[in-house]
């Protein structure tokens, strides 16, 4: 009893001490609960219900089925929610990793270029931002046309202008113009390339800001020591940019695992199926759960994905702490 009283008095004392801070923080906490925590709890509750087209009108009062939706997602291979699930997981892993590191890599190279003084630098910086301001829906739709076999600009450039079929012929590869969107591994490249094209300006901007924050003295000292460009990058730029890298890595992975728009739009503006090498987790969940009005399994799948992402974020946090301490 005395212990409880002590805890309460401590809490009250802390409140009195930081009262103003708590009052200021209160609206944000309230919004967080209202807009984030409650829908999350509602989602978890939905994942335990049989909420489909027959019971949707009962909404949160739909029949309680416990772990059935989780069982269907994880173990019931004949469940419609599992159609193409494994290939979607495989594609998402490839997609998220390649896009995240691809955007970071290109972003870093361009940021290094723009970090030098030259005429027209500001104009170039503005121009480089162009892909990033194109909405993802538009990117998907445009690249859907660009990848087409005969009329798409990509095959026209590669085969009609650059004549790469002559090179490919020497290598023994088929000299025909390829289909990019017809469900073989090339489809994965066809969804990754536009995403990297659209996404790299963001890390470029962040890394450029990071580069401009590195004192120039370090590089001058390295010059005196006779370090070459690569060494300067590896021993000065890279370690000092690690906090920026780490944040971009986290944002990139989360954003790309949850990617939807570009892939959804690229195959007949949302009408077609992306194929075994084009379907991602989000397009898969959207089709198998929400387009089937099976909100219960959709919620279960989303919750499982959220837990997986929490594990990824936890690993990242340990890495980030290491970076900070370093």
């Amino acid at each position: 009893m005395a212990k409880t009283r002590k805890i309460i008095s401590n809490l009250l004392e802390t409140y009195r001490k930081y009262r103003l801070a708590y009052i200021f923080v209160m609206p944000a906490v309230f919004c967080l609960i209202l807009l984030h925590l409650l829908p999350l709890l509602q989602g978890i509750w939905m994942s335990l219900l049989q909420m489909d087209q027959f019971t949707i009108s009962e909404y949160l009062g739909a029949p309680f089925v416990g772990w059935k939706n989780y069982y269907d997602v994880l173990f019931n291979s004949s469940s419609p929610v599992r159609l193409g699930f494994l290939s979607a997981v495989r594609n998402t892993i490839f997609y998220a990793i390649i896009v995240t590191f691809g955007t970071l890599g290109i972003g870093m190279i361009v940021a290094q270029m723009l970090n030098r003084q030259f005429k027209g630098r500001n104009v170039l910086r503005g121009l480089f931002l162009f892909p990033w301001i194109v909405p993802t829906f538009v990117v998907g739709m445009l690249w859907g046309f660009m990848w087409q076999k005969e009329t798409g600009i990509i095959n026209i450039i590669l085969y009609d202008i650059l004549q790469i079929h002559t090179w490919l012929g020497w290598l023994g590869v088929s000299a025909d113009k390829p289909f990019w969107l017809m469900g073989d591994p090339k489809t994965l490249a066809a969804i990754i390339i536009p995403t990297v094209w659209r996404g790299w300006p963001h890390p470029m901007l962040m890394l450029l800001a990071g580069l401009q924050g590195i004192p120039h003295d370090y590089y001058e000292a390295a010059d005196i020591d006779g370090a070459n460009g690569w060494r300067k990058f590896w021993y000065i730029t890279f370690p000092l940019l690690k906090p920026v890298w780490a944040i971009l890595l986290l944002f990139g992975l989360i954003f790309n695992v949850y990617a939807f728009n570009i892939v959804y739009m690229m195959f007949g503006n949302g009408a077609g199926f992306p194929g075994e090498w084009g379907d991602l987790l989000m397009t898969n969940i959207f089709r198998n759960s929400f387009q089937r009005w099976d909100f219960g399994t959709g919620a279960a799948l989303s919750f499982i994905l959220m837990v997986v992402m929490m594990v990824v974020v936890n690993f990242w946090y340990k890495f980030y702490k290491g970076v900070e301490e370093g």
Partner: peptide
């Protein structure tokens, strides 16, 4: 009642895969 589900999830997907196979 099942038509909507079958059309979106099974038929569009699988007949799309059929065309993929035809091309390949």
């Amino acid at each position: 009642p099942a038509w909507g589900q079958m059309e979106t999830v099974v038929l569009t997907r699988d007949l799309g895969l059929m065309w993929d196979e035809v091309v390949r």
